[in-house]
Amino acid sequence: MRDSRIETVKVKSLESGVRWILKRTFFVDFIKGLMVTLGYNLSKGVTLRYPDEEKWIPYRRFRGVHTLNRDLDGRELCVACELCVKACPTRCITVVPMEDSTGKGISDRVAGVWKVDLVRCLFCGYCEDACPTTAVRLGRGYERACFDLSSAVLDKEKLLLPEEVPPDLDGGVIVAASFERTGAGMKVNADFTKLKGDWLKMQG
């Protein structure tokens, strides 16, 4: 038992020796440790109760699922220039231009087909950099889990729908949410009016 750590202590001076003995007699280190864990026990946890009760809303700079936008008059901004297709490193965007003079778009040339394969997409944001009319933007949607890969290809109709997160809501917050499981699939219903706190502050 020569190496027993409890027994061998190098007493450098009388004072440190006395302190060593007192420390062990009154369990000073134990009590310090217990106080640390008690503090944690009483502190609020940082667990995000997603998706049952809470959901994190990303910042505006977040690069999530694509959106196609309209101008203030409701005309499609996309002019089907196909620059996003050229810029895309994974070639996940397909654009087929179409002539249209009904005023659906901001010019006579609109996208007949505009679809993005989210399985291939790496969310680099080059398409929004390339877009001359700010038609394509990476939005704040991130719940794309699915059972069937075909539902990972989004077409123009879906992309043109307004985003779920209201545009005036700054990101980086946690809102109340509920989880819905039906035969058709799963959905997280977020209530954007009920803010539950700042994400960064909750991380301490």
Partner: peptide, 10 residues
């Protein structure tokens, strides 16, 4: 529960 809260879990 005690374990969870001490380890800042739920």
């Amino acid at each position: 529960k005690v374990a969870g809260h001490i380890q800042v879990r739920l």
